[in-house]
């Protein structure tokens, strides 16, 4: 019984959600692999973007596709209805983002002397992390809504 409880705490997704997520993950991994190989093979013939940008675009597109499918399948949200874990995680992410941003600002301001906020890497990282957290939050909500669909 104790072991079952520990398992439940470590695995907030149920078995169907885990299977769905793994299936989508496998498909996306192969998609990423083949897209990168095609991009590499066609580099000399079709140049649709410079090398780092094309790889970046493929990775972002595949990640977006994975995220969309997982959320659509309802395999992102937890089975735990009253869990404090996601809030704890988001709090941890926000705190670490703020600390890292402050460290970046301090480094630029006091160590280099040429501090420019709009083009600052720390600010960009903060915005990126904020958007990332918002995506996670919205995805969780949508996935939980999907989980509650269906008739009795």
């Amino acid at each position: 019984m104790m072991m079952t409880n520990k398992r439940k705490l470590k695995e907030p997704l149920d078995e169907m959600q885990i299977q769905t997520r793994n299936k989508i993950g496998n498909q996306c991994f192969f998609m990423l692999f083949f897209l990168l190989m095609i991009n590499l093979g066609l580099q000399d013939y079709v140049r649709w973007a410079a090398s780092p940008m094309s790889v970046y675009t493929i990775i972002v597109l595949t990640m977006g596709y994975y995220m969309t499918r997982v959320v659509w399948a309802g395999a992102y949200g937890s089975t735990l209805t009253k869990s404090v874990k996601p809030m704890y995680l988001i709090g941890l992410l926000v705190a670490s983002t703020i600390i890292l941003s402050l460290l970046g600002i301090i480094r630029n301001k006091f160590l280099n002397g040429n501090f420019n906020l709009p083009n600052d890497g720390a600010l960009r990282m903060f915005i990126f992390s904020f958007v990332f957290i918002m995506i996670i939050f919205v995805s969780s909500k949508i996935s939980n809504l999907k989980n509650n669909q269906g008739n009795d």
Partner: peptide, 22 residues
């Protein structure tokens, strides 16, 4: 039983084959 409602719905409608544990 600590699963989602979607899973119960899928089992009842025959879309998902549950494990022996479930």
């Amino acid at each position: 039983i600590n699963v989602t409602r979607q899973t119960i719905n899928a089992i009842e409608s025959g879309d998902y084959n549950p494990s022996i544990r479930l």
